[in-house]
Write a protein that binds this DNA or RNA. Structure first.
Lengths: 208, 208
DNA sequence: GTGCATTTTTGCAGTCCCTGCAATTATTGC
DNA sequence: GCAATAATTGCAGGGACTGCAAAAATGCAC
């Protein structure tokens, strides 16, 4: 972790502008819908020229989703899963996800609105899923490590089983988050975690 | 299953035109890259006007992916899952997927090139995920119907459990298909089906 | 502060994707 | 052949996005 170097005025302005664009994008899309919001509108509210918009983001969708620094997150998740205290794989995966993403989801107006938009617009969801694709394989690798350490009998194809296991848990978390948003994003994070766990268990029950 | 009604000239031409567009799209993108291929080029090679292109496909990406009318597929899947002979939910989902998609996966030059393109261009992958998202919710609804009919004790949240169950099965099928392609797409479909079932079982075992 | 190098912002022209509309052409059932 | 229906097409236009070069802002010496 390199400590923050002192930012000059230039960099501070750049960060602030970026945030202004993200905020404007989320607000306008919330109000006007995904197709109703134009880059011109967003730029105007963010107080920049339309051309500058594309200096900050490659596409309208990217601005709405904001920027994810996935490298950091990936390392954290891998470490979290592999070093989980429990022997329960589901708990290891789900709790790690909440430990990593929970703090990021600290309720700012921006993040909450953004999550709602992702639920609402499939186009955004698929783009986000795509961003998360790399993350899934990282998680799968961590799960393999988890299994190698704890399970006396490994499944025949640890890697593939791990991928499916991750898919299952991620789906549960996604649903729990969706419910959380639908309920107004008021409940605390812990209850969302418990909900995701419960859903997974019920599903496993139903499938076996 | 309604037996094939005799197709008139009109319908035959439509099917043929659609195929011509898909082929032209894949060929040109293969040659020129995703951004180098324009709708105008594709239309010219397919011998239609650019405007007609958009009568067949919503977007350039859809033409490359060869998006079938998902409505048809969705109805088939819903019917397949709901009317499965088995009481095993996993078998119902996985076997329905293979029954619907198996025949579509017959190996052609077109399909092989298409799969390569999807690997190569993240944007196409993103779009494909989008298509699958719609399909997933249809399947989830069918699973709810399945559960309502067969299970004496329904889970507390049938819809959500169904979504997670579908995610799990779809992930298994995806892996089985990936293996199949990696192995040169030579083995028969049935072995792929058995593989997907086996993977799911192993995963459920590991998770519980 | 002043001057100079670097970075950022901006306008502009242009390409491409995609849509609605209305005219034209092709197929179908009679 | 003739009307009904469906497919194709051209056209006008909006919106996303890019390259380029001018203009403004910033950083850094002095």
């Amino acid at each position: 972790m390199p400590d923050t170097p002192p930012l000059g005025l230039r960099d501070r302005k750049r960060i602030e502008t970026r945030l202004r664009i993200e905020t404007a994008a989320v607000e306008i899309v919330t109000a006007e819908g995904l197709d109703g919001a134009t880059v011109d509108m967003i730029s105007e509210r963010a107080d920049i020229s339309p051309r500058t918009f594309f200096n900050y983001f490659e596409s309208k969708e990217d601005a709405i989703l904001g920027t994810q620094d996935m490298g950091e997150v990936q390392r954290a998740i891998a470490a979290g899963v592999a070093s989980a205290e429990t022997d329960d794989l589901v708990a290891a995966i789900v709790s790690t996800m909440f430990h990593i993403f929970g703090p990021m989801a600290a309720r700012t107006q921006l993040k909450t609105q953004r999550m709602a938009l992702v639920q609402e617009h499939p186009r955004l969801l698929s783009r986000q899923i795509h961003q998360f694709t790399q993350l899934n394989s990282t998680m799968a690798a961590a799960v393999v490590e988890f299994l190698t350490k704890r399970e006396s009998t490994l499944p025949r194809d640890p890697e593939h089983v791990a991928e499916i296991a991750v898919a299952t848990c991620v789906a549960s978390v996604r649903i729990a988050v969706k419910e959380w948003i639908a309920a107004g994003a008021t409940a605390d994070i812990d209850s969302m975690y418990l909900r995701a766990m419960g859903l997974t268990r019920e599903t496993l029950n139903t499938l076996t």
